[in-house]
């Protein structure tokens, strides 16, 4: 985690689990770093955005940036706070950009192109092999191509986040791992993380590519 570039951009097919990964990543990072910011750049979805967990993250010391008019503004308008520039410019700030789904959602990054390129970045693609459009190597490659074309940034790492929520099994995770591995072999993009709910994460063999990241389901209410 600490080896990742200071600015981490999280992208992926919508519904791949970007937000859950980004929030978990931030919560783990703040245990080791004092200056952490998470910017919710999701202008595609209106439900289940990381800003919903702003209170939890702020209490841990994470700076949360979202809409210019507050985390609770339930507007379906693409309004992003100019406050996003502060963590991007602050060279001591470990910054996570949680980007909305697909290439459409990733388009929002274009306006920060100059500063992000200047500062250096990692861009992680979250892959869930149980999502309709990313069940095959071709599907994932198409998403990579579209997101790279739309943003002008290169994907630097793959994340296997294959799951079926609470029904996730080790087999599901390994199925996703095989998919992500085939994409990695073809593109030479390394597998950076393999994430799964805690009870499944414990059972993942340690010789798989990527760092195992146990996930807490912060975004899912207990009754869901």
């Amino acid at each position: 985690m600490l080896n990742d570039k200071r600015i981490r951009i999280i992208v992926g097919h919508y519904g791949s689990g970007k937000t859950e990964f980004a929030v978990n990543y931030a919560m783990k990072l703040i245990e080791q770093e004092s200056n952490v910011a998470l910017a919710d750049l999701d202008v595609v979805n209106v439900y289940f955005r990381s800003r919903e967990k702003a209170k939890m993250m702020t209490e841990k010391g994470i700076k949360v940036i979202s809409s210019a008019i507050g985390h609770d503004a339930n507007l379906d308008l693409p309004a992003i706070s100019a406050g996003i520039f502060a963590p991007l410019q602050d060279e001591t700030c470990q910054t996570i950009l949680d980007v909305g789904g697909d290439a459409t959602g990733a388009r929002v990054l274009a306006q920060f192109k100059q500063i992000i390129n200047f500062m250096g970045y990692d861009m992680f693609l979250v892959v869930n092999a149980n999502r309709e459009e990313t069940q095959t190597k071709e599907g994932v490659l198409r998403h990579i191509e579209e997101i790279e074309r739309q943003t002008g940034f290169k994907i630097t790492g793959l994340i296997n986040n294959t799951h079926l929520l609470r029904e996730t099994t080790l087999e599901e995770v390994l199925k996703g791992q095989a998919l992500v591995k085939s994409v990695s072999d073809e593109t030479n993009i390394p597998i950076k993380y393999i994430s799964a709910i805690e009870k499944v994460a414990q059972t993942i063999p340690s010789d798989v590519d990527g760092e195992i990241m146990p996930i807490k389901m912060y975004m899912r209410e207990e009754w869901m």
Partner: peptide, 14 residues
Amino acid sequence: AKVLMKGNEAIGAA
């Protein structure tokens, strides 16, 4: 096999 879908998409698919 089960797929993970968002409610609105799943309505369309169904």
